[in-house]
Amino acid sequence: MNAIECEGLTLALGGRDILHRITLAVAAREFVGVLGPNGAGKTTLMRAILGLLAPREGQLRVLGRPAARGNRAVGYMPQARGEQGLHLRGWDFVAAAGGPRWGLPWRGAAERAAVDRALALVDATALARRPLAALSGGERQRLLLAQALLGEPRLLLLDEPLISLDPHRQAEVVALVRQVQQSLGIAVLFSAHEINPLLGAMDRVLYLGAGKAAIGPVAEVITGPVLSELYATPIEVLQVRGRFFVMSGGQDMEHAAHRHEHAHTHGGTP
């Protein structure tokens, strides 16, 4: 059974098509990097997979069933990270995402064990004893990953986990996700602005742009002809010492987008 199946899927926001009639499938144990410039629809696609946005047309099946809210088998790390509760202990923060039940937030033995397991998976057991405010961006990222792993998902959606991390930490997070993905045997969608940090880890790449999608092995998708067709504008792909540079009109597209994103996140963090 595939983790995700889209058929002629159109996603619209405010009457505008963000993704138009895309068709693709992600296999059960696959690590797929989701790339594309700002506004390409990476977040929108993930929200649709979670059932937070209904398709305008077409089919969207998640783990064999139509996408719907409340699916415990789908873990999610949102791009918009809350600014609330920074004084709270990491453990309490992670555990808060236990489930949608009503009642008091007492955590029973089983629930506590599940939180501890998720923390151990990402090697954050010690970190979780500190308040969030006393953690670095990369350390907080690990707690968010643990939170996404609660409920033992078979599909993990990670929206821009590399934002505001330096290259060294980026490589750490990617390696960690890859290792967790393989040891649990789950599917991962991992969105990012730059392809290079993901190169060694991902099985295939999903490139979104101009409402369309291209999925396949890196060598087949990140090429001048494919991206040029996706954007309907001439695009060159340079490869230097194993790293990719996607150029449009002499400008490096990914790095331009990345810088932009940096300006944003630094403005928002206290």
């Binding site: 979670l50 059932g51 937070l52 809210r69 409340g70 415990r72 789908v74 999610y76 790390m77 949102p78 918009a80 809350g82 609330q84 509760g85 709270l88 923060f93 808060a96 995402a97 489930g99 949608p100 939170q147 996404a148 409920g151």
Partner: peptide
């Protein structure tokens, strides 16, 4: 309060 998007998804 802590994770509005994730809560809605769950």
């Amino acid at each position: 309060s802590l994770q509005p998007e994730l809560a809605a998804a769950r």
